[in-house]
Amino acid sequence: MNDLLFTLSPLEHPLRFALAFATLVLAYGVFTLVGFGSGLIAGAPLALVMPVARVIPLLAVLDFAGSATRGWQHRQRVAWSAFRRLLPGMLAGQALGVLLLARLPLRATALTLGLFVVWQGLRGLLKRHEPAARPAGPALLHGLIGGIFGGLFGSGGFVYAAWLERSLPSREAFRATQAVIVALSTGWRIVLCAGLGLLDGALLLTALACVPAMLIGVKGGQRIDLRLSRERLFLLLNGLLVASGGGLLLRHLA
């Protein structure tokens, strides 16, 4: 499990692959509904069955495929001015996050990921106590923080979404711009991971085997989009974050 050459094969590790497949279906269902969350939902459970340094590049490949497709479909609604304001910080933050991913010990990275996911879940559950409207804040800082979280933990989309939601009045513009910034950030993360030796042919084969899980999750998310209230959706999302992050912490602290 500490070997960076570890590959999650459905033939060699059928039970682990089944857990990963189910996790990815759920993660990309959430991703379709809210525009982020695949790394937050899938990161901790996947780290139970494969090394963290393999999880982040895997999710980057799958995220890029999903978000690039959505961004292209809705490219005419993208708020390019907001996109350009987030871009410089995101590029710099991703580089720093991936560098930390390649240098930190795997156990320390797993524990940090668990704490991060639990913190995000608790923060989301308590978010209703925050003021309803707040200023968006500096785009450069949000881009930088989102990039670091994306490079290190595989999920910075919630930071971009927080800034875009306060900056763009149109829900359609928010979704389209979020899709493009996530597509670009994951594409940049793929380049950085490949440059640091974190992405190889075996991992690409694992990602290819997981593509059906992503497609099932996206299709499922589209079907329940109009059936689930926003309040219940975020309650489910944050509850899953606390549970998955807590499980990862317990495993690596035991």
Rank of each mutant, 00 (worst) to 15 (best):
P57K: 08
P57W: 04
P57M: 07
L58A: 09
L59R: 12
L59C: 11
L59P: 00
L59M: 14
A60R: 00
A60M: 09
V61T: 01
V61I: 11
V61Q: 00
L62K: 02
L62S: 04
D63W: 04
D63A: 15
D63V: 04
D63K: 01
F64M: 13
F64S: 02
A65E: 06
G66R: 00
G66C: 06
S67V: 05
S67P: 00
A68E: 04
R70L: 07
G71F: 12
W72Q: 05
R75K: 11
R75L: 05
Q76I: 07
Q76V: 13
Q76H: 15
V78A: 12
V78Q: 04
V78M: 08
W80M: 07
W80D: 02
W80Q: 08
W80N: 09
S81F: 05
S81E: 11
A82S: 15
A82D: 10
F83P: 01
F83E: 04
R84C: 10
R84W: 14
R84D: 08
R84Q: 13
R85D: 06
R85N: 03
R85Y: 04
L86G: 00
L87A: 10
G89A: 10
M90K: 03
M90N: 05
M90E: 01
L91F: 11
A92W: 03
G93L: 05
G93Q: 09
Q94T: 15
Q94N: 14
Q94F: 03
A95Y: 03
A95L: 15
L96Q: 03
L96C: 12
G97T: 03
G97P: 10
V98Q: 01
V98R: 02
V98A: 02
V98E: 00
L99S: 13
L99F: 07
L100C: 10
L100V: 07
L101M: 09
L101G: 04
A102S: 15
R103F: 08
R103L: 13
L104R: 10
L104K: 09
L104G: 05
P105M: 13
P105H: 10
L106G: 00
R107Y: 08
R107E: 12
R107V: 15
R107Q: 13
A108Y: 09
A108E: 14
A108F: 12
T109L: 14
T109W: 03
A110E: 12
A110D: 04
A110T: 06
A110W: 09
A110V: 04
L111W: 06
L111V: 07
L111Q: 00
T112A: 15
T112M: 15
T112C: 13
L113Y: 02
L113W: 04
G114R: 00
G114F: 07
L115C: 15
L115G: 15
F116R: 03
F116P: 01
V117K: 02
V117N: 00
V118A: 05
V118D: 03
V118G: 01
Q120E: 10
Q120I: 12
G121M: 05
G121L: 05
G121H: 11
L122Y: 09
L122V: 14
L122Q: 10
R123Q: 12
